[in-house]
Nucleic acid binder design. Structure first.
Lengths: 132, 132
DNA sequence: CATAGTGTACTAGTCTACTATGACACTAAG
DNA sequence: CTTAGTGTCATAGTAGACTAGTACACTATG
């Protein structure tokens, strides 16, 4: 349960935390019912303020991914049907791995890769009339 | 010269603008010496405050990508050697296109794709001991 | 029952992004 | 010279993210 956040990126820390917990769940790294790190310990390890971690956890609860039990702890929601999701992610992961490797071999750095992916998502979103 | 920013993403608007102008240059969409949209017009079209656009342009100037000439306008820096860069990007683009298409076919949405790519970049960065 | 560990809540203050407005200075075109 | 278009600068204010510190309430354990 290690989270790596980037305080410099401009993306609020609590949003980054949310994304990473979400990813850990989708990924199968943590399973439904499993206990997540406590607010204070997590805040220490990142490091960030406990209030900010609490904010992220509360948002995750609101999203239905996490259950917060006062006095007890934070747990991955029991009711989640993660099987289908983690299967998709498991299939997708090697695809992404290979692509990122290819791009790195071409000499692209992280930011350039991000820009390419973002541009692709943005273009096709507009073309397909998806949300936003 | 159309820029699509997402005010909801948590990423500061001026950073998103910088990334997109950068991408347009790397991509060959605008060439060295070419004039960029004026601060006020750009601000209108996005929309955002002219000060914020000016901040982005100033940062781009500091990065050496753009030249600002008072009274005249903003121009893509003449001295840029973009050939090698745009070649790499041109090679990389279809790779990214195919991958994103595959992921979409698997049923992944934008956010899930972003998380996968980000996780891949983060993991390998740590493993390889790259910057940050 | 006592205690340690948990989530919850509140106040206060700082910092940054952003908006709003207005004025100024320079440049190119008529 | 005039004018329209440009970048530059300064002030003020709003909103959100984050930190700091403190106190409280609940739960599990011994």
């Amino acid at each position: 349960m290690i989270f790596r956040l980037n305080p410099q990126s401009g993306v609020p820390m609590y949003l980054q935390l949310i994304e990473q917990v979400r990813h850990a769940i989708e990924n199968g790294a943590v399973r439904p019912g499993e206990q997540l790190p406590g607010i204070r310990k997590l805040a220490e390890s990142i490091p960030m303020n406990p209030n900010t971690v609490a904010k992220a956890y509360k948002e995750l609860e609101h999203l239905g991914l996490v259950e917060l039990r006062q006095g007890s702890g934070a747990f991955v929601s029991e009711k989640l049907n993660t099987k289908e999701l983690t299967d998709r992610m498991r299939t997708a992961k090697p695809i992404v791995e290979r692509t990122v490797e290819k791009l790195r071999d071409l000499g692209l750095n992280e930011d350039e890769i991000r820009r390419l992916v973002e541009a692709e998502l943005t273009e096709k979103r507009t073309a397909a009339g998806e949300r936003q």
